[in-house]
């Protein structure tokens, strides 16, 4: 693992930042926010988001993981896991 391994909070914060344009209410986006249900991202938007995060964290996030990701927190965990495994 590299020295620049992102912390749990920094990954979550970056993802929340990237999701701000999709915010549908005054409710803050948290780890529990559901990406499809609460933010209405369709599958294409989720795939586009993954690409952005791949570049932000210089990591590969396979599309295979999309099916298992429902919440913002799960997405953050996926990024951290990929980074740790890299």
């Amino acid at each position: 693992m590299g020295m620049d391994a992102p912390t749990e909070d920094s990954v979550l914060a970056e993802i929340i930042n990237a999701l701000l344009p999709f915010k549908k209410s005054d409710e803050p986006i948290t780890a529990e926010t559901e990406i499809a249900r609460d933010l209405k991202l369709d599958s294409l938007a989720v795939m586009d988001l993954l690409m952005v995060l791949e570049d932000k964290f210089d990591v590969s996030i396979p599309l295979n993981m999309v099916a298992e990701i429902t919440t913002v927190g799960q997405l953050a965990k996926a990024v951290r896991d990929q980074k740790a495994g890299a």
């Binding site: 795939m47 690409m51 590969s60 599309l63």
Partner: peptide
């Protein structure tokens, strides 16, 4: 991509 077992990356 979904039918197979490879790891899928989109560019």
């Amino acid at each position: 991509c979904r039918l197979g077992h490879a790891t899928v990356i989109r560019f």
